Amino acid sequence: MEIKELNEKDYLESMKLSMYAFQYKIPEESIASRIEMLKRHKVIGVWDNSNLAAKLHIIPYQISINGEEWKMGGVAGVATYPEFRRNGYVKRLIIEALERMHKEEQIVSLLHPFDIGFYRKFGWDIFTENKKIQIEKKDLKFTEAQSGTIKRFTKETHHPDIETVYAQFSKKYMGMLVRDRTWWANNIYGDGQIAVYYNQNSEAQGYLLYEVKERKMDVQEFVVLTQEARCGLWNFICQHDSMVEEVSILTSSHELLPFTLHQPKVKMEVTPYFMARIVDAEQCLLKYSFKDIGKKVFLHLEDEYAPWNIGSYLIADGEVKVYKEKPGSNCVQPPQRGVRLDINSLTALLFGYKRPAELYELGYIKGKEEEIADLEELFPFNKPFFYDFF
């Protein structure tokens, strides 16, 4: 068994494994473009007697954290042929991927799980949920009229205003993908179109990504910066009342739209979506925007699969001091007091998915109640969200 990075001559084998594992077929005319896409990935594989047995893709992205852009390693395309399963190959690939992402300074990693429990074992955890709102035609009631206008765009007429709105919107949340023009062109529109709300000053304030077919309106992105845009876009949805029997809206679990509806009693489904993992805890904590509350809190961190994260971190006066054991060193050891947690819990805290008091109640973090209270004050109230897929 050997682990190595795939090169261009191996890409066809990688695609064959993907087609077998995920049960789809790549058209012959699409193979060349797929190879070009794979050149932007780092694909690592397990080779068993010169046969590709398992593989994993690491895709370089950036996400928005506290309004800053952080390097992120997107994990995707994890697959194994059935005859090679339960040999620990995927575990070896995940450990190798963590080491490579650490070297590439991708301080966090995101993935879409086939099984949440499986990836939790390796330090990834849920960081965001999606809310799907189902609205029947009878509940398409207009709200107060707005003074702005709606303009519609397609993939061919895509406008920079849309990207500006998304960039501003993403700063309100933790973990949203930083989208470049190529991503917009290749990964967003599909068969849909985008309706943008402009205020009286011709400033874009929100948009819908949507499709209308078979008498159903499917809103895949509902992105608003202001209440005016929220009302204006909702009224635009209502304008389809003669065309549709049902509207579905996919949005953040934090979106306030349902509260504003004439009939808020609509069907809503909240589902865990993407998972995140801290790859480099030291850099995450150093870059993170903690509140300066004039108190000190020690975090004692465990990480089974990324041992470079194991250590103690003192958060005080808006700064972080790191204590890690080094063989043969005489480094000062931190006191035994402090909050003890694993990398899963730290990830949930940093992304704002869970609060310290919640994890303490669940027994996921340990410490004295006064230390947990201090930790509550240190962490700002953030809202995580993620619209994309890879």
Rank of each mutant, 00 (worst) to 15 (best):
P335S: 12
K16Y: 13
F222Q: 05
I278S: 02
L362Q: 14
E245R: 13
Q23E: 11
F236W: 14
K171E: 12
R215P: 08
N186E: 15
Y387F: 14
P380E: 03
K16N: 13
G88W: 04
K121N: 04
D388Q: 04
A316H: 14
W308F: 11
E214D: 10
D303L: 05
A21E: 08
D342Y: 03
E69R: 14
N199R: 04
K137T: 03
D303K: 05
L12G: 11
L140G: 03
E358L: 07
L12S: 13
I26R: 10
R85H: 04
E211S: 05
S202G: 06
T164A: 09
K267Y: 11
M176Q: 07
F84M: 00
R215Y: 06
E36A: 10
V247F: 05
G352L: 06
R120W: 04
I249P: 00
Q146H: 01
F290L: 01
L341F: 05
A32M: 08
M1P: 12
T182C: 04
Y313M: 00
E13I: 12
Q200W: 09
V320P: 03
V219P: 02
F114W: 11
I35W: 01
Y210A: 00
V90L: 12
M101E: 03
G190L: 05
Y61A: 07
K213A: 10
S329K: 05
V223M: 11
F127V: 07
K368Q: 15
V224F: 01
V224L: 02
E361A: 15
K25M: 12
L378T: 02
V75F: 10
H112K: 11
K55G: 05
Q62H: 12
F22S: 02
T226A: 01
E36T: 08
A276P: 04
S170Q: 02
N186S: 11
E282W: 01
N309K: 03
P356T: 02
M37P: 04
V43I: 15
G367E: 05
G294E: 05
G77V: 00
D180K: 09
I310T: 11
K25V: 12
V75M: 13
F351E: 07
G232K: 02
D48G: 05
M243D: 13
R230G: 12
Y273G: 06
K91A: 09
P60Y: 03
K171A: 09
G232Q: 03
I135G: 02
S202N: 15
E28F: 07
N344H: 09
D139F: 09
G67R: 00
P160K: 04
Q134R: 13
V322M: 03
D280Q: 10
Y387R: 14
W47R: 06
Y207V: 05
P384D: 09
E36C: 09
E214M: 10
L359C: 03
Y119L: 10
R86K: 11
L346A: 02
V165W: 02
V224I: 14
Y166K: 01
P307S: 10
E370P: 09
L17R: 08
A229D: 00
G206P: 00
E8R: 07
T182K: 06
G206T: 01
P307L: 15
G88P: 01
I59G: 10
K267H: 09
A373Y: 07
W308R: 09
L346T: 01
E376I: 06
V244R: 05
F298L: 12
E302D: 08
